[in-house]
Simulated assay, not measured.
Amino acid sequence: MFNTPLPTVNELPSTRKLVRSTVIALLTAVGLLVTVVMPSEYAVDPTGVGRALGLTQMGELKIILAQEALADATPPQASAPAPAMQVAQVQPVAKPVAQPAPTPTSALKTNQMSVTLKPGEGTEIKLEVLKGKSVSYEWTAVGGPVNFDTHGEPYNVEMGYFHSYS
């Protein structure tokens, strides 16, 4: 019934070889855990190898993103203003697309803010825009490159849906 013959007792590895192979596999797993997994997943780098390979920075970024996701999931509470976190100036300007407002005053609203970021930190700036309206904005970064993503999240849609603007 067997397609291959069963190995003989002489062909099987000895208990000593099995223990040796198990110890080698265990040491390899622990080495990878300490030098690769812990720095890249949890930003814990006891050996310094993760920092040298750039894995610790990846772990730090994951922690920051997880904290932001947790903050987004919790309902907003009335509290003191958050500390400044980004080197950027954002000037959102909301104005109607179709017809100007019937009032004689200007329909444009201008806001300006300055946020300071430390290396590896991030922030999210949100603006609520009514359907049929448009926004003009301008921002600048001083002191280095800044990664950004502009997207819209409509109300009453499935979790995770967004519209990206390029």
Rank of each mutant, 00 (worst) to 15 (best):
M58G: 01
A80R: 13
S21Y: 15
A29F: 15
T22C: 13
L18N: 11
M38T: 06
A107C: 04
A73N: 09
A78I: 12
L108D: 07
E158Q: 09
Y165N: 04
E41R: 15
L33I: 04
P5C: 08
G122I: 03
L18F: 14
A84N: 11
R16I: 09
G122V: 03
V90G: 00
T116C: 02
S136G: 10
A98G: 07
G59D: 01
V142N: 05
T35L: 01
Y165S: 01
V49A: 01
G54T: 05
T105I: 10
P100N: 11
P81E: 00
I24L: 15
A29N: 04
I24T: 11
G144C: 05
Q57A: 15
L27S: 08
G31K: 00
A73P: 00
P100I: 07
G143E: 03
S14E: 04
L65A: 14
G143C: 02
T56V: 01
V36D: 02
S40I: 05
Y165H: 07
F2K: 12
V146S: 04
P92F: 03
S21M: 13
A88D: 00
P119H: 01
T123L: 10
W139K: 02
S14F: 10
D72W: 14
P92I: 02
S136A: 13
D149E: 08
M85S: 11
P145A: 06
T150W: 14
Q99C: 04
Y42K: 04
G144N: 03
A94M: 11
F162L: 08
G54E: 02
T22K: 11
N156W: 10
L32T: 09
Q112K: 09
V87H: 13
S166M: 10
N3C: 06
S136W: 12
P100L: 12
K126P: 00
I63Q: 12
D149L: 15
P83G: 02
K17C: 06
A73E: 08
S21F: 14
K118A: 07
Y155C: 03
S21W: 15
P46M: 00
P102E: 07
T4M: 11
I24A: 15
V97I: 12
A25S: 13
Q112G: 11
L117M: 09
Q67R: 14
A98I: 11
L6P: 07
S134N: 11
A88R: 06
L117Q: 04
G143K: 01
T110I: 13
V97Y: 14
L33P: 03
G59T: 07
Q112R: 10
L12V: 06
L130V: 06
L65I: 09
G122L: 12
T105R: 10
V142Q: 07
Y165K: 01
A82E: 08
A73T: 07
S40L: 05
S14N: 06
T150N: 12
V115I: 08
Y155S: 10
V19Q: 11
E41W: 15
E68A: 13
